[in-house]
């Protein structure tokens, strides 16, 4: 019986996502023009739904202090209050408002994940493009180092490094960015390798262009589409990793409001049949799903509409 209800629930969720995506496509098409507009018109419903979700998250993160009923760390009542007046989603293990914590979580968790991804990307992409453009021993040395670092699973490596440097937010950002930049390096190098064999790169080399100009003017513009998609994928990965570490108690720590640690702090409620702790977990999942749908669409477009 429960099984049936869950199936019905899932179907309803999927259907409402499709409907929302369909509805959101109208403003998307109306507000864009030219090339972008044509792309939006052809956007799959799930991608359009994804864009809607990302937009909402961004708005919530930016407007957190306005939207939240209380301050981020304010204790407003007894612990584990049920959903009700004055505390819509109840209170957490210290009696703070769950809704407020969720809203601030958008700012903290997403913000930290974004910063980490940006850092990983600037290191990894630059080195990767450089290695492919220069070739020779620079490429060999960098690739060997990256190969060795990638031979250790990401989560295990980050746990190892966090043991050494201690578990703080800044350490976590640096560790994850460093580990993730190896993956970005691998991808941007292989994308750039496909580009540097082109005749126009040979022509630019023969013209006597400098390495910097070769990378920024000739290679980068052509590597942009896969790199942007990769940024989305990497963001998902980093975001999940940070959430997992926080959930394990090794990442973002209280009193900072963060979705991963909120699940951990309130997990006991689950055994009493209260699904409140699933809300922050769902918030994580929803954003990752949204980004993934958009990235999937972009990758599909970039691959030249093969199927």
């Amino acid at each position: 019986m429960t099984f049936l209800w869950i199936l019905v629930g899932l179907a309803c969720l999927g259907l409402s996502a499709v409907v929302l995506g369909w509805l959101f496509r109208f403003p998307l098409v109306a507000l864009t023009r030219g090339e972008l507009r044509r792309a939006m018109r052809g956007a799959p419903l799930m991608a359009s739904f994804g864009m809607l979700v990302i937009l909402i998250y961004a708005a919530v993160a930016l407007l957190a202090p306005v939207l939240a009923p209380y301050a981020e760390r304010e204790v407003i009542g007894a612990q584990y209050l049920p959903w009700g007046e004055g505390h819509l989603l109840g209170t957490d293990n210290l009696g703070r408002d769950m809704l407020t914590r969720l809203i601030y979580g958008a700012r903290n968790t997403v913000g930290i994940a974004l910063a980490t991804t940006a850092l990983a990307f600037s290191i990894g992409a630059l080195l990767g493009l450089w290695a492919a453009a220069v070739g020779g021993w620079v490429d060999t040395v960098l690739s060997r180092i990256v190969d060795a670092l990638m031979a250790i699973p990401a989560l295990i490596f980050s746990l190892l490094l966090l043991t050494i440097f201690g578990t703080s937010i800044i350490n976590m950002i640096l560790v994850i960015a460093a580990i993730d930049s190896t993956r970005v390096f691998r991808l941007s190098r292989s994308v750039a390798q496909g580009i540097v064999v082109m005749d126009y790169i040979e022509a630019a080399r023969l013209r006597g262009e400098t390495m910097w100009r070769l990378i920024t003017r000739e290679i980068l513009p052509n590597a942009m589409a896969p790199l942007v998609a990769e940024f989305g994928l990497r963001f998902c990965f980093v975001f999940l990793m940070i959430s997992s570490l926080s959930f394990l108690g090794l990442g973002i720590k209280p009193p900072t409001a963060d979705w991963g640690s909120m699940v951990r702090e309130n997990a006991t409620l689950i055994s009493y049949g209260d699904i409140t702790p699933l809300l922050p977990a769902g918030a994580i999942a929803l954003l990752t799903v949204a980004v993934n749908f958009v990235v999937d669409w972009q990758l599909h477009r970039a691959s030249g509409l093969k199927d």
């Binding site: 998902c236 999940l240 959430s243 997992s244 991963g260 699933l278 977990a281 994580i284 990752t288």
Partner: peptide, 14 residues
């Protein structure tokens, strides 16, 4: 795609 996007602990708690 959806289930890839879920953190493991979310799947576990569900």
């Amino acid at each position: 795609l959806t289930s890839i996007s879920f953190p493991e602990f979310f799947v576990a708690y569900i």
